[in-house]
């Protein structure tokens, strides 16, 4: 095992993927608890599709991928939140529309320019080679911003997650915190999708929260549990991917699935005994 570790970290691209991936896993898990409980988990999926479209266009224009994708996905997040809040098209249907349209535009743009190549495969299913030095700096900065804002506004996020009507009625600006949540989610998705892939990144949002909820019963417990589970699963998934030469993103998802089953069992045992 130690040999494996030493081997792993002797490659600088793996170290970079590990650093960024761990931070993304942490952010996604924290936000995921609130998103899952608010029934917003599909937003993560929708945003990653938008991210794919934005990345394809950035590549066609030879622009920096993160610099193009971040504002586009943040905009899409606000749009999705608005739509699910007010209009006649209901939230889940709106996400379906926006997600498939972005994916379609992305595919058309790539096939017209570079053609479907390994880059596109990497965007869809993730690649640990994706991160260069610059990307790492930007990703780490964004992740730290997400973590900082989440901790500062933890209590407000709890309040609007548990009961938006009460929060609004007692003078808490619920819309503001919903937007904050959407904003942070958008950033996390953009940063994470290059390693995990557009198709798989939403699992980092949904899985740890659901896993942790099987076992823990307080909000703080669920949040901390999700963070730990997420980071651990990401790490094990990366090791597994090296060991068995499987795709990194997919392996992380499978490890998350195993953790979920384990926790579901543990939760059953706990409520059976207690």
């Amino acid at each position: 095992m130690t040999d494996l570790m030493v081997n792993l970290f002797s490659y600088s691209f793996i170290t970079r993927a590990m650093i960024v991936g761990t931070l993304v896993a942490l952010c996604a898990a924290l936000l995921g608890v609130s998103l899952v409980l608010k029934r917003y988990s599909m937003i993560g999926d929708g945003l990653s599709h938008v991210g794919f479209g934005a990345l394809s266009i950035a590549m066609a224009m030879n622009a920096a991928p993160l610099a193009v994708a971040t504002p586009v996905v943040v905009l899409a997040a606000f749009l999705l939140l608005r739509i699910s809040g007010s209009s006649q098209i209901k939230g889940d249907a709106a996400i379906g529309l926006i997600a498939s349209s972005s994916l379609a535009i992305g595919v058309i743009v790539t096939s017209l320019t570079s053609g479907m190549n390994t880059d596109v495969y990497g965007y869809l299913f993730g690649s640990i080679l994706a991160m260069n030095q610059e990307d790492v700096v930007l990703s780490v900065t964004l992740s730290v911003v997400v973590l900082f804002l989440f901790v500062i506004f933890y209590n407000q996020i709890f309040a609007v997650t548990f009961d938006e009507a009460f929060a609004k009625a007692t003078g808490v600006k619920a819309e503001l915190y919903n937007m904050l949540l959407a904003f942070l989610t958008a950033i996390t998705i953009v940063v994470g999708m290059r390693i995990m892939g557009a198709m798989l990144i939403s699992s980092l949002v949904v899985f740890p929260a659901l896993t942790s909820m099987r076992f823990f019963r307080s909000f703080k417990g669920v949040v901390i549990g999700a963070a730990v589970v997420s980071v651990l699963c990401f790490f094990l998934g990366m090791c597994g991917s090296m060991l068995f030469s499987t795709p990194a993103g997919a392996t992380v998802v499978v490890v998350n699935l195993l953790a979920f089953l384990l926790f579901a069992l543990a939760g059953r045992l706990r409520s059976g005994i207690l």
């Binding site: 709890f158 548990f162 009507a165 007692t170 909000f219």
Partner: peptide
């Protein structure tokens, strides 16, 4: 709401959130 009935939070966390305003 339906969301609340199944919400993982301790009683203390819920009550304390009333102080937020």
């Amino acid at each position: 709401t339906v969301v609340q009935r199944d919400f993982p939070a301790s009683v203390y966390e819920v009550v304390l959130s009333g102080c937020l305003n």
